[in-house]
Design a protein around this nucleic acid. Structure first.
Length: 333
DNA sequence: TACCAGGAGAGCG
DNA sequence: CGCTCTCATGGT
């Protein structure tokens, strides 16, 4: 007889900033829990099951809550992963996961969150210079996720010349229109899985444009058709070697060097992939070449040799650090 | 209003 | 290689 499965699972992990990780522009589907549900840092014990406003049990025992009110680091997140509705709540010693449907094994989640990665070892591999020291100090606990290649590919095809809020909107519309419905918590509207390749492959360009992705629609359609037809095997790219995977991704219309690197890094775990977007470019210029005017290619050459075996991780720290700094300085973003 | 957004592709010299 | 233009759409 198999175990019944649980709707709760505690993942022990230190130095994991869930908010920074889920909201740093690598994945676009996570929503901060609107209830303001907070875990009690310093307690990992199971809370009683008073119903939270999102339909999940409320994690914060009222009156014993030591977390600063509305501290974004302690808020819960919900999303849909591997066809399951899941809520994640940070605690002092790890991450508490809750699902709606009982689950027997949780590798799908721990693999996605990459909680087994030795973050200290990654940080030690960074170059010992002032920009990296500042970025690491400013982004304690920032991690890289390991996403599904198809979702990652489509998301980043839609990312070109779009702000993160807009990418999120495009992906949300895409899922609502083409994704399989997923049961949510009681009293909550059902969510949607990320659309299957086969579903997008039979969509029309006009339907995709209705998701506000504009000129990216034919790119998404071409990717879906190529994968559905078997001309591109996203699973095989997991094991075929970086250069071949990079070439296969770059062969898709709408996928250049930057987006290919995003998919290599965020989905295939190629830690040396180093996506250079406008933010990273800005960071490299300001932090490493303050009063010169290096060309973009010069910057990419520098990046390729300077950041070491975990260059992709370093890139995410630079990206998040400069983005947060810009956000606190000049209003928006 | 003008400018910009986690770019890419095509045309041109 | 480097430059420029276009693509679609929303936010500041």
């Amino acid at each position: 007889m198999t175990p019944r499965g649980q709707t709760e699972h505690f993942i022990p992990v230190r130095d994991y900033d869930l908010a920074a990780t889920l909201d740093s522009g690598q994945a676009f589907r996570w929503e901060r829990d609107a209830t303001g549900t907070k875990a009690t840092p310093g307690s990992t014990e199971r809370p009683r099951s008073a119903a939270g406003r999102a339909g999940f049990p409320d994690l914060s025992p009222r009156g014993v809550d030591t977390a600063p009110a509305h501290d974004p680091r302690f808020s819960s997140w919900q999303g849909i992963l591997a066809g399951r509705w899941v809520q994640l709540t940070p605690t002092r010693d790890g991450i508490l996961a809750r699902t709606v449907v009982p689950v027997e094994e949780w590798a799908w989640l721990t693999h996605y969150l990459q909680t087994a990665v030795d973050l200290e070892a990654v940080l030690r591999s960074f170059p010992d210079d002032e920009p990296m020291r500042a970025s690491v100090a400013g982004c304690r606990g920032l991690r890289l996720l390991r996403q599904e290649p198809w979702e990652c590919l489509v998301s980043f095809i839609c990312s070109s010349t779009k702000q993160i809020v807009q990418i999120r909107q495009i992906v949300r519309l895409l899922c609502a229109k083409f994704g399989e419905p997923i049961a949510g918590p009681a009293g909550h509207a059902p969510g949607h899985a990320f659309p299957a390749v086969t579903r997008i492959a039979v969509a029309s360009e006009a339907e995709l444009r209705a998701c506000k992705m504009g000129f990216r629609a034919p790119y998404v359609l071409a990717a879906a058709r190529r994968v559905a037809a078997g001309a591109l095997d996203l699973e095989r790219l997991r094991t075929c070697g970086v250069d071949e995977a990079r070439a296969a991704l770059g062969d898709l219309p709408g996928v250049g060097e930057k987006i290919a690197n995003c998919v290599l890094l965020f989905a295939y775990g190629c830690q040396q992939a180093f996506p250079v977007d406008v933010w990273v470019q800005r960071a490299l210029r300001e932090l490493y070449f303050p009063r010169r005017r290096p060309t973009e290619q010069r910057l990419r050459r520098f990046a390729a040799t300077h950041f070491g075996e975990n260059a992709g991780y370093a890139q995410q720290y630079l990206f998040h650090y400069t983005r947060v700094a810009a956000r606190s300085r000049g209003g928006g973003h």
